[in-house]
Design a protein around this nucleic acid. Structure first.
Lengths: 148, 148
DNA sequence: CCATATAGTCAAGTTACTTGACCAACTAGT
DNA sequence: ACTAGTTGGTCAAGTAACTTGACTATATGG
């Protein structure tokens, strides 16, 4: 494996990931959710199961808690999330998705599924499964977060 | 293919791409090139073959030409590139990599190759080739550029 | 119950972009 | 070959997403 081959693989990987991110973003906007940036998607992913605190979010996104707090402000202002009292810690707030936040999450999933379907049309269903299997084995564990 | 499967594949893809970007960045820094951000890498890729104008770079990176010009300023200041007269257009400048710019590019290639070698250790050489083949077929054509 | 750590916010500074205005040089039409 | 319009680049100022620093309120452990 020479450097040039590694670069070709790297370029294809980064191009595919960048394209997917853009596709999801466009799909979400097309479904009527404006003012959301890809970074919000990573936040949604952390909030979706049971909510999270600002500090949890900050760790997940790899930013300061001030930045996470500002992001939450914005999501609250746009109607995607709300701050609730935290059960068992009066300092903390539990940030949870609103109905609109859940709808936006589903829109992102649909957009992603659409892109993946196109890959299936090119590679075949079986090969897409192989792709997922391979990527899952080499993906660094830990949260998915914006990286460049 | 359900939405949840599409999300699992998307997450693995984005995590792998994010991890690779980070690995390359760390590898470049570890080899003594400081003050370079991932965005510079995409600029290097465009400048490497024969140089490019500021406008070329702006199109490649998907930013305004003012932003591209500022990026070039920074690369010149840090010794990675230089502005030359453009042969055949007195308005334009040809931006080319310096020796240090080339060295940095090679460092990035080595860091990428290192990460890819690790994938080979996990998946096997053949499967890595399959991975590249698949990604090449689904990668959107056009320049690789920062996307989230 | 006091000392220290943690959750969160407010305020101000930084940085990587943007939009707007402008000049110099190329290009096309007559 | 002159003018009109386009293109390459930069200067200047504004914006948005972060950062660092300072602070309050609540929790936790000797």
């Amino acid at each position: 494996m020479q450097n040039s081959e590694a670069m070709a693989l790297s370029a294809a990987l980064l191009a595919t990931a960048g394209g997917l991110t853009q596709r999801i973003h466009e799909g979400v906007v097309a479904r009527g959710f404006e003012g959301v940036r890809p970074a919000h998607g990573f936040a949604f992913a952390r909030l979706a199961p049971d909510g999270a605190t600002v500090t949890d979010l900050a760790v997940h996104l790899g930013v300061t808690k001030q930045a996470a707090s500002q992001l939450v402000d914005e999501m609250v202002r746009k109607g995607y999330a709300e701050r609730r009292a935290h059960p068992g810690d009066a300092r903390a707030r539990l940030i949870v998705l609103t109905a609109r936040g859940w709808a936006c999450t589903r829109a992102a999933e649909e957009a992603a599924a659409e892109a993946v379907r196109e890959w299936g049309a090119v590679l075949g269903e079986g090969e897409v499964r192989v792709l997922q299997e391979q990527l899952s084995r080499i993906a660094p564990r830990g949260p998915v977060r914006p990286a460049w």
